[in-house]
Design a protein around this nucleic acid. Structure first.
Lengths: 205, 205, 205, 205
DNA sequence: GATGAATGAGTGTTCATTCAT
DNA sequence: GATGAATGAACACTCATTCAT
């Protein structure tokens, strides 16, 4: 076994802190998630936070990045493990909603009290996330067409955008406590929405 | 013209404060929206806030109520001024997204730092709002069926729920600053989504 | 029946307020007994307090005066209703301690946060109270000697002082400012009291 | 000479703060003795108070403990330096009254505005103090009997209690809640004290 | 590297007091 | 006479941040 390099040790510590930060911010939101809480959860001194990061904003940014990374790990692995357009489409809709619900939404609440520089970075992150999600969707639609399951009535580019934003809907119920109940309700509705998109509601000719 | 009664003057002042509160909370979120800021915007002393309200939470609750009231005023008037299922459906989808985007979302961010009693009231408010929105949708669907424009494939009850939550999607983009750009983008996508729901994406036959 | 004169009505109202003040201060102490509480208990507006009194201190002073007045009413009536030196002596010792315990002590806690003028008045009141108590005791001792129940071993003047201060000892812990003077006085009396107790428990001959 | 350990430095600082707190509370009482005043007197920032203590109540508790500690240091050293029952008895009576007068009494005024937990701790402290005082007295009486200076007419146990409470009578006026219980106890003791005084001044034979 | 100690700036809240009516 | 409305000044407490070690 090799020893960890200094560089690695530093990165490891940083990762521990970011993990703690993600949990604290997810639970309390940005304003109420304190540096002290994070330090305590990471089992380090409060001042040490400032050895690794420049400011609360910086820590928050890293926590958001981590949340995104995790999000795509989970979703892409899941989709890859399934077969066929319809199942994959369902997965691509259902999984994000739970994950976003658990981790992402409160994280975004910060924008208001952020210096402009960080807001820009935050939005860049978000845009990158959207792009990646759209790519996933686009790829899936192309597969669906290749399987001759769907047509391109609306243009897949546009469609990817729309479905992406629609999936993000979860964020509307920020931080309610009875998660299980609400999630069940949301997921049930999600099923219906999937059918809806697949078939539409207007009568045909 | 009669003079305003004392009662009216008081209510007017209260309304001014609540209006200020709504603006401040919408801009800064609950945690960072300070009583001092609200007082300043309402052009009264900080202590005066406590003559009219018991606590920051109470002020916030009133701001939320005001946001809801305005929301339904706007949307219901708009819908009433239009004719035909499709136009009304479009309106019922487009207007909320802008309004919610402007006023409601940040307001809900408070839940984490709220005493249980207020969280309950907040959720009751939210549920009441949803119900009213669902009623509007349900009524519209019935009209659409009466006009022989749509069928009841999914059950209007369920459909109302789904579309409601889907419309509320706006909340996912909490408080970004370049509102105009994003709103334009969102509304364009919204149009597509409307088509989507109306027609679906799967091939027929 | 005559109507109450304006003067009387005013005095009646004042009395109601002072009664309320006495209760509030007795329960909460000076610092925590608020003008608002008193006004509420007297069922008048808070601002009305300032029609009848100049300041919180003034209200407090009147409450203290009332407490003293009641104190002597109770004790003197009680003593008058009894016969014989020993019973009267017991009453004169027992009743004050309960009354002081219930009403007076917290009232005196105010001295620290009081303007000098009021402190002086407060102390004058206290001295007047002491004098009256001493008079009661002195009169009683003379009666006791007339009944041939006691001798004048210590001098009744001094004895009245001692017993009075011993009963009132409660009051001493109240942060008066001229500590040196009062302490000297108290300690001199203390000496006498010590002799008293020693002669009570020391073996004779 | 060795340098002070970090631990010691911290304790020293804490002690400085508590000393300042004791002085401020003694002068202004609990309600009017502000954290800001204490910090100023200890020459630290206001926020630093909260690095060392959890709350104003906690600071106050420590100030009370310090006052007690000092109290017994002073009194027990004094008594130990004297010879013979009578001198020691005088000291045991004289010193407390001055010390209590200077430091303890105002400190107890806090009870009204204290959370239950702290009131309990306060009363426990007080009870511990009383016990220690009673022990001192009891020991002294036994010495007095050994010296054949006094007899046990009233029982030393009871006598210790009485003299203690008599000295401490100051404390009784402090708004304790269980008035009935305490008053009954006090009045029973009062009876004994009355007998004591009567047997001191009544003619014999 | 890591942190204990320290704090300035700010927060929500209370309250005695004023004043126009 | 009486008071509703308004507020300045203060208070306990929090927290992101700094700095000497």
């Amino acid at each position: 076994m090799e020893e960890l390099s200094t560089q690695d040790t530093l990165e490891l510590k940083k990762a521990t802190i970011i993990q703690a930060a993600m949990e604290v911010f997810a639970k309390n939101g940005y304003a109420k998630g304190s540096i002290g809480d994070i330090a305590a959860k990471a089992e380090i001194g409060k001042a040490t936070m400032y050895y690794y990061f420049d400011s609360k904003e910086a820590v928050f940014m890293e926590a958001v990045k981590l949340a995104y990374r995790r999000f795509f790990e989970v979703i892409e692995n899941q989709v890859a493990s399934l077969e066929g357009f319809e199942d994959r489409f369902r997965a691509l809709v259902r999984i994000p909603i739970r994950y976003i619900y658990d981790h992402l939404p409160i994280l975004f609440e910060a924008r208001n009290s952020f210096p402009a520089a960080y807001v820009a970075e935050l939005e860049a992150l978000q845009e990158k996330g959207r792009q990646r999600m759209r790519d996933n969707l686009h790829r899936l639609f192309l597969e669906g067409m290749a399987e001759n399951k769907i047509d391109d009535r609306f243009g897949f580019e546009a469609l990817s955008n729309v479905v992406h934003d629609w999936m993000m809907m979860a964020e509307l119920n920020l931080g309610v406590q009875e998660k299980q109940i609400i999630m069940q309700k949301l997921e049930k509705e999600q099923d219906l929405l999937i059918e809806l998109v697949l078939y539409g509601i207007l009568k045909r000719g």
